[in-house]
């Protein structure tokens, strides 16, 4: 069944915006979506795949390489033909074993042919694409350690059972979860470029609209998809335009100052905050088709880029999003 179209999701603008920004500039580094049950988190991520422009990759390459020299030799590929393929969006299920994530000895081949071959895992498939972890806060610790390492180095190294394999694994992490069910380690939190908090729509008109669209999606699928796939395509085109606009975008010195002052005032750990905020603000400016980075862009991108980088204050019940907005108002007044 085709997933629910991205553009047909009612409301949740911040979440949709964050996903579009990572699609414009993958180096922003992923989105974390935290929120209650039944707010369309998983729906949005599954819809993301249809929104991403296709990539060129060598046919049959297990890590979706674009150039022949990047195809790992264990793949034993003899073709160099390129083909257009959808950007991979790979689901990392909870409780996936280490073997399945990193890849391991191909047991089928080992048992039936007696050959020592490598069976690539999810990280290989996610190279140059997205890795989606639903319920990321419930992920087992050893898998998290492994992901942190790979996300840091962009390379997956497998040393086990007599195999010694390495292959590129650069991917955008997308995670979703319900904060009530468990916390995320700060180290993993830091790897996500943007974070958004979603809540159920509270007004009845929105909820009725959600029901209408869902009903149409299920009972009148063809007509519904026809209408919304066109919208999705429009967003996809706009993403491509924005990618081009990004290269032409100028960043004035003043904007850099603003970004630095903001992160300083918030006391976010490390420099990743500044870098991500800058990238996100630039991607936002490109999305809006503006030619120079301004305070308005920084203001719009600040909550999602910085929310999860603050030290937790057990006394502040308002949530870190509100804190960011408060400081943004003070610094960029």
């Amino acid at each position: 069944m085709t997933p629910f179209p991205f553009s047909a999701i009612v409301g949740q603008d911040e979440m949709k915006q964050a996903m579009i920004l990572t699609a414009i500039d993958a180096s922003i580094g992923g989105v974390l979506v935290f929120g209650d049950r039944g707010t369309g988190k998983s729906t949005a991520v599954r819809a993301l795949a249809a929104l991403l422009p296709p990539i060129n990759a060598i046919k049959g390459c297990p890590v979706n390489s674009e150039r022949a020299e990047n195809v790992p030799d264990w793949a034993m590929l003899d073709t160099k033909a390129l083909h257009e393929t959808p950007t991979p969006v790979v689901d990392l299920p909870l409780g996936a074993t280490e073997d399945r994530v990193t890849g391991a000895l191909d047991i089928e081949k080992a048992l039936t042919k007696g050959e020592k071959a490598f069976q690539p895992g999810l990280l290989a498939r996610a190279n140059r694409g997205y890795l989606y972890i639903d319920e990321v806060n419930l992920l087992e610790d050893h898998i998290v350690d492994l992901l942190l390492d790979v996300a840091q180095s962009g390379e997956n190294v497998v040393e086990r059972e007599g195999l010694s394999i390495r292959h590129p694994a650069r991917f955008v992490l997308v995670g979703s979860g319900n904060p009530e069910e468990g916390e995320l380690r700060p180290q993993l939190l830091d790897r996500f470029g943007l974070s958004v908090e979603v809540a159920s729509p509270k007004d009845i008109a929105t909820r009725v609209e959600v029901m209408k669209r869902r009903d149409a999606f299920e009972n009148d699928n063809a007509a519904f998809m026809l209408r919304w796939q066109a919208e999705d395509a429009a967003i996809r085109d706009r993403i491509l335009t924005a990618r081009k606009a990004l290269t032409r975008l100028t960043t004035p010195e003043k904007a850099l100052h603003d970004v630095a002052a903001l992160c300083l005032a918030l006391g976010s750990d490390g420099l990743r905050g500044e870098l991500t905020l800058l990238k996100a603000a630039r991607a936002f400016a490109a999305w809006r088709d503006d030619t120079a980075l301004t305070r308005a862009h920084i203001r719009a991108a600040a909550p999602m880029a910085l929310r999860h980088r603050l030290r937790r204050d057990p006394l502040d019940e308002a949530g870190s999003g509100t804190r960011v907005i408060r400081v943004v108002e003070e610094v960029l007044a």
Binding site: S200, I204, R207, V210, M211, R214
Partner: peptide, 17 residues
């Protein structure tokens, strides 16, 4: 349906569906 769900304090949109 949406009104009743709201009156019962049901946040999730899955319920009215």
């Amino acid at each position: 349906i949406a009104t009743i769900a709201a009156q019962c304090g049901i946040d999730s949109v899955r319920a009215p569906l």
